[in-house]
Amino acid sequence: MDKVRRVISVIVANEAQVLARVSGLFAGRGYNIDSLTVAPIPDTDLSHMTIVTRGNRRVIEQIVKQLHKLIPTFKVIEHEHMVEKEMVLVKFPIEKPLADIQALCQAYNGGIVNVGTEMFIAMAADESIRIEHFVEAVKRYHPIEIVRSGVVAMER
């Protein structure tokens, strides 16, 4: 069976251990995590986790079911039609061409977010695949550091 990429949202009770339960489940059962983000849902006692994983049909089905089986899990959404965004921060030495990089960032919904005496930080926010393109494109400017946020997604 072919491996597919899946974005899964897990709505969980915002309580101690819950991240460990989810990540432990993936580790213990040998599932992949490409990325995992988690943050509280405003005005509730719930958290929203977005997990990007890959596996064949049976594995993906098991992941969804096993996630649902965890006691603090409220809801599991296997995304089909979604808006998917990821952010990346990239740090450059101050000597690099700031204007060129700013123009590049703007093409990826970003810009320059911090300028210091020795370095500056650029940001882009877009779909994962476009973020990959962005990271490829900025490599020619020899960035000092790249930090990706992992995916957040919302069903449309």
Binding site: R58, E61, Q62, K65, Q66, H68, K69
Partner: peptide, 8 residues
């Protein structure tokens, strides 16, 4: 009773 057993 455990959906995760089905199709595993």
């Amino acid at each position: 009773i455990d959906p995760a057993n089905i199709g595993k």
